[in-house]
Design a protein around this nucleic acid. Structure first.
Lengths: 248, 248
DNA sequence: CGACACTTTGAAGACGATCAACGCCGGTGG
DNA sequence: CCACCGGCGTTGATCGTCTTCAAAGTGTCG
């Protein structure tokens, strides 16, 4: 069965942390593998929530559109991330966002009942779920705060750092995993503003040429960005990045 | 026992929905009543989370301070609302905000173990908790989006509407429940901006004199504000408000 | 009455959005 | 092989909105 190909993604899943390998396998077997072509909506804002998803490969954009036509990217997800965990639990059982694969993607999809059943039978699963949702709520709050209090350039610097952690990139030298337009939208700014922000970051030791990024002088970036993080522990991102830089 | 005085607040609590009256009472008995003088911090950002709180009377401001001294009000809570439900579940077990009573307030406080125990023994409780947290996460996201896409005046109009629902005010005629400075901070804007926003709203049928507010011409407000809400169902606020206006 | 917190108003400045034009590149079709 | 096109990104100029600083007005409470 083709699920084996994704063991490296599925076994370390935080949602399943604390379960035995066999228990994990038993749960995962119940999922349905689904290929999603780039550009083909996976689900729509307002539709009833029917499934829970684990992304196995590709990139999926979550966004909302206002009646006035403007589009806000809520998040851009990669393999190993999950979709709809909090939408499932919200009392209004409709999707709160549109989901659109940016690349050709593969997801593992589970019916709602699966989540409820898993939460009932495995206490750990329920706790993991709660913890994930609570954490996401926190992140959303934090991001909102940062968007309000940081300049465009700071937001970009911050984003690049997070990117390195999420994708395990070496900050000195990596490629943007998706287009600048998408990044700008993710950061809630116009493409022009994003472009100008990159120019400003040149002076601060972040060089971006085309899709290639290299971050030098981490200390400077930290001063620039982290002064606005509310609490040092919340800036654990930097720790991870430092680790990367100091290694080979 | 003095808890009886708050029956009107405690019995309809969404967190306890679906439990028998006696079960609710048994759970609530384990809480400790606590008086909080205005201006005395209830807990601090970064401290370990030790309790879960139900607000019985008064008003409590949740906020964060940046190292640069600026202060962001996350929320302003009233009786019947709860604190720390999602902080409890987050894996980092520290407070993410400061809590400061604006008025002299009374809270019912429960140790962490109480929440975990209640979630274990009452399935409904666990589900309510999850649903609340998921819903809050959604609200935070939505608010962030609105802050980015609406003008100051629109945000204020929107806020006043929500205020009417939360406090069961008659939109034609009510008093602001706390200071304009606090409202401005809650909306993520400067007091001056808030003040100017009120001036603009005069033309649109929202009159504010001192602490007194009267909203006429609800249709106009809806056009003004709701065009930016992502989906009509999410604008249920308006339905409630209309109900109020059409009554007596 | 006077101190003080709260609010309003004015004027200047910063920042991002918007509009418009241009450069760059890969693909398509003659 | 070259010309044309469309998607993507950059750059410049302008505009509106919010913040900031400063000053004056309002109210309450001793």
């Amino acid at each position: 069965m083709p699920l084996n190909a994704y063991t490296a993604i599925l076994q370390p899943l935080p949602l399943l942390a604390g379960l035995e390998t066999q228990e994990k396998d038993a749960l995962l077997q119940q999922g349905r593998l689904r290929n999603c072509a780039a550009g083909q909506m996976l689900f729509l804002h307002g539709q009833p929530v029917t499934h829970f998803y684990i992304i196995l490969s590709g990139t999926i954009k979550l966004f909302r559109t206002s009646p006035d036509g403007s589009e806000k990217t809520i998040d851009v997800l990669k393999s190993g991330q999950t979709m709809c965990e909090s939408e499932i639990m919200d009392s209004c059982h409709n999707h709160r966002v549109n989901a659109l694969p940016v690349d050709d993607s593969v997801v593992l999809e589970f019916p709602l009942a699966w989540v409820k059943q898993a939460a009932r039978t495995h206490h750990v699963f329920a706790l993991n779920l709660l913890s994930m949702i609570a954490h996401q709520a926190h992140q959303a709050e934090l991001e909102a705060e940062q968007q309000a209090s940081m300049s465009a350039a700071q937001l970009v610097a911050c984003f690049l750092q997070r990117l390195c952690v999420l994708y395990d990139f070496n900050p000195k030298d990596f490629e943007l995993p998706y287009s600048k337009g998408l990044i700008a939208s993710r950061l809630g700014m116009e493409l022009e503003t994003f472009s100008r922000a990159l120019a400003k970051l040149k002076d601060r030791g972040i060089a971006v040429e085309g899709n290639h990024v290299s971050i030098h002088d981490l200390a400077a970036i930290e001063d620039y960005v982290c002064a606005f993080c509310s609490v040092s522990e919340e800036c654990a991102t930097h720790k991870v990045i430092e680790g990367k830089l100091n290694r080979p």
